[in-house]
């Protein structure tokens, strides 16, 4: 297992180098640079040109990239042109809020999705199944912007129960997490349903029933545990996406996550910050995926056996 983890971490390095180069290249392709985007009309053309020269913007892409990656290996991820702060500091400042939102979001998604998916599967093609499917579709097709605002109107404005913005105080996580969670629940519910449908037809479920095991235990212990791998995979993917930032939810609830930071950075053509954000998000997601793989091993002993080889 440890060897497996070390292998994964080492594999991360080339991935991050590739990601950083691709992002560097793409940001470079987009017209405009941070000097124009940030300073716009404030500076004369000559002043901007001097700045570009000083900041090395006129060097070729490869030279700039080599310089950047060289600094990264020295532990320096560069300064944001927009915020005049180290990219690493800006990113790390946002990470706790993003993690909080992502994990609560997926938690809520799973709490909704697993029971609904299981119930759909055991009542396949009945009214209950159809109703769950409709609820799932509703959750998936409901724009999170709209759903978020309606919740704010109900819970903050009408009832006064929850704060309408920010990441402070009691209950501030509830509505953002619900918005993220409801959106993710639909896919997870469908995954749970199809995975469960496959598992409850397996012979070992019949074996369990033949032993006299209670139906609830059959479903939630014997079947669900076996159905978990696809669910965990889907949840991990959703979580990975959420770690990159949930821009709409962050905007609606003024949630200080990495998504808005990345978008703001890109709009300002703040290459250093954009590349920094994406490298760090990739690293974060990779670590997450590694955890997911480790969770697999705990859920399914066959996978665990494979890792130790």
């Amino acid at each position: 297992m440890y060897r497996y983890i070390i292998k994964r971490v080492l594999l991360l390095i080339p991935i991050l180098i590739a990601v950083s180069f691709i992002v560097f290249f793409i940001v470079d392709l987009a017209p405009g640079d941070s000097i124009d985007a940030v300073f716009g009309n404030e500076l004369s053309t000559e002043d901007k040109e001097t700045m570009r020269e000083e900041m090395g913007y006129n060097d070729s892409l490869l030279v700039r990239y080599a310089r950047y990656i060289g600094n990264v290996f020295k532990g320096d991820m560069g300064m944001s042109v927009l915020f005049k702060k180290p990219a690493l500091e800006l990113y790390l400042n946002r990470v706790p809020a993003t993690l909080k939102l992502a994990f609560w979001g997926i938690f809520i998604a799973l709490i909704i999705a697993i029971p609904l998916g299981v119930i759909s599967a055991i009542h396949q093609n009945t009214f209950i199944d159809t109703l769950s499917t409709i609820l799932g579709l509703l959750g998936m097709s409901m724009p999170s912007f709209w759903f978020g605002l309606l919740m704010i109107i109900l819970f903050s404005l009408k009832l006064g129960w929850l704060p309408s913005f920010g990441n402070e105080g009691r209950g501030s996580i509830i509505m953002p997490a619900l918005t993220v969670g409801v959106g993710q629940a639909a896919l997870l519910m469908r995954t749970t349903r199809s995975s469960m449908l496959e598992v409850i037809r397996q012979d070992y479920i019949r074996t369990a029933r033949a032993k006299g095991v209670k139906e609830g235990v059959v479903i939630y212990k014997h079947a669900l545990r076996n159905a978990l791998i696809p669910i965990i995979t889907a949840a991990g993917t959703q979580l990975g996406i959420a770690l990159g930032g949930t821009v709409v939810v962050e905007s609606v609830f003024a949630w200080p996550g990495v998504g808005k930071l990345t978008i703001d950075a890109f709009n300002a053509r703040d290459t250093t910050l954009v590349v920094g954000c994406l490298i760090l998000t990739t690293a974060l997601s990779s670590v997450l995926m590694m955890f997911i793989d480790i969770i697999y091993a705990f859920v399914d002993p066959r996978i665990k056996a494979r890792y130790s080889r």
């Binding site: 605002l149 903050s156 309408s164 913005f165 905007s251 609606v252 609830f253 003024a254």
Partner: peptide, 18 residues
């Protein structure tokens, strides 16, 4: 000075008194 980028959310925040 609180940053709320979404105008509808800003308006609700002043309505709630926050």
């Amino acid at each position: 000075l609180q940053y709320i980028s979404e105008s509808s959310s800003r308006l609700i925040a002043v309505k709630t008194g926050e």
